[in-house]
Design a binder for these strands. Structure first.
Lengths: 267, 267
DNA sequence: TTTACCACCTTGTCGGACAACAAATTCTCT
DNA sequence: AGAGAATTTGTTGTCCGACAAGGTGGTAAA
């Protein structure tokens, strides 16, 4: 009963075609958020599919698609003839499968994000950058270096590369100062891309490797040279599958616990 | 046309209720395998949903659920009113979201897996082990240490912990020698659990961190003390959500490239 | 030549029906 | 009264058919 009531006030989004996202995605997102926010505790049984669909004002088909996605991602488990339950250990915290930015990662760890030693510049694309972003070698790119803070402690050093053509083209011309101002205030590059360029990041592909801090990075993070570092090299793609940004993230060892839910299917 | 023909010989699995797996899962698995094996190349358009469903002999609803899962996992992309396409960069290689064992990881990298310095023993559960496996502190556990080879090169050192009660209880009693023999021949612990104990691993939760090789590990992997190591601590769960095994995997830096597909949803 | 419209193909959503499965309940026989 | 079998109930899994909504390309009109 009390579980049912949690879904009550959601007759929303009926004619809500604002952002073009699909119904299934919005329902999936809604339920995932309820689990991540702790509204639906682990091991609680959800209402049956029919009730759920009527409560959220969608058909059972769409509800089932959403549930299938959530099940594959490890948030819920469905038992034929029994019911649907929130997983015992849903992948809520620091889940690498969810492409949240560094700022949110820090915030979800319950700490206060910050930023120092911001450095904004333009540089010609190196071979690696040009390959990953599918642009010409030497093409001008925007480079954004930041030392990220969690409760005033240096935990991550990030370097972002974006083709300069995104900000400086016949359609728009955004001065670097605007970008710097926005980043200093909001801290999130994703938000900037969405709000100012209406550019939506669809997904990222990350490459994870252990690393040893060189002089430059150890200086940025104020740790000893040779300290353990987790290096994440990530390329972000837009809805069309085109690369948008290349990011290098250097994490101080054990500053965060990164988890991955690994589905055993495909052998 | 040639794309259609690839689905031809699959009127299978109609009355095939062998393992109790759902139709949606089998279809998902089938398509994912086709993509991973290169039968469906990136950016190729799939047949429309109706044709696909008839070709694979399932309803359109089932097909759609499978497609939803594959889309969320980054293998395909659907465009309303246009069609369904294989992603530009499908997460096929060394995808950490798929819980394949080390043996298969090595094999999928095109190298020959091997194993040396196998060590099988029983030890009382430490605090960490007892916590992760939900067993009593000091309860007897099976410990399996292995140095894994890729083309005769030492690349991973793995340590697996399993409650001894799995192998030694009123229902069954498997001597350690049997386990050792099986592992030496087949190398895969997952296979052993499935075949001999009919225990299916449903998923795992991995924790990733950079590490520095101590004396013991550097000796096992024959690298310098203090070398960079990628440490993956993983707990595997069965279908009921109960923990089955705890594994520590120590990867030589850059022996493999680990990728993760990160979906940008949930912000 | 350019533009507006329209037909066609695709995916998205809906609603209902039935099958398969699990658990609780009831019934029956001892 | 107790134990086991049959039934009922509730849930998820699968199927079918219909229509809405978006995209593309061709066609006809301006």
């Amino acid at each position: 009963m009390s579980v049912l009531s949690k879904f009550e006030p959601n007759t929303l989004w009926e004619g809500d075609t604002r952002d073009g996202t699909q119904l299934v995605q919005r329902v999936t997102e809604h339920l995932r958020k309820m689990i991540m926010d702790g509204e639906l505790l682990p091991e609680t049984q959800l209402p049956n599919e029919f009730d759920l669909s009527t409560l959220l004002n969608v058909s059972r088909s769409t509800m089932r698609s959403a549930l299938a996605i959530l099940e594959q991602a490890g948030f819920i488990q469905r038992r034929w003839g029994v019911g649907t339950f929130v997983t015992k250990n849903p992948p809520t915290y620091n889940n690498l499968s969810l492409n949240s930015g560094v700022t949110q990662l820090i915030r979800s760890s319950g700490e206060e994000p910050g930023c120092v030693e911001l450095l904004l510049a333009t540089r010609p694309a190196s071979e690696r950058v040009s390959n990953q972003l599918s642009i010409e070698l030497g093409a001008p790119t925007l480079v954004l270096e930041r030392v990220r803070l969690a409760n005033d402690q240096r935990v991550v050093f990030t370097v972002d590369f974006l083709p300069l053509s995104l900000f400086h083209n016949p359609n728009c011309d955004i001065p670097l100062a605007d970008i710097e101002e926005y980043i200093l205030e909001h801290q999130s590059f994703y938000d900037f891309l969405r709000q100012r360029l209406s550019l939506e990041i669809h997904h990222g592909i990350a490459w994870i490797r252990p690393y040893s801090a060189g002089d430059y990075i150890s200086d940025k993070l104020q740790i000893r040279t040779g300290s353990n570092i987790l290096h994440i090299e990530q390329v972000d793609f837009d809805t069309n599958g085109e690369p948008v940004a290349l990011s290098d993230e250097y994490y101080v060892a054990d500053a965060f616990r990164f988890y991955i839910y690994r589905s055993t299917q495909g052998a």
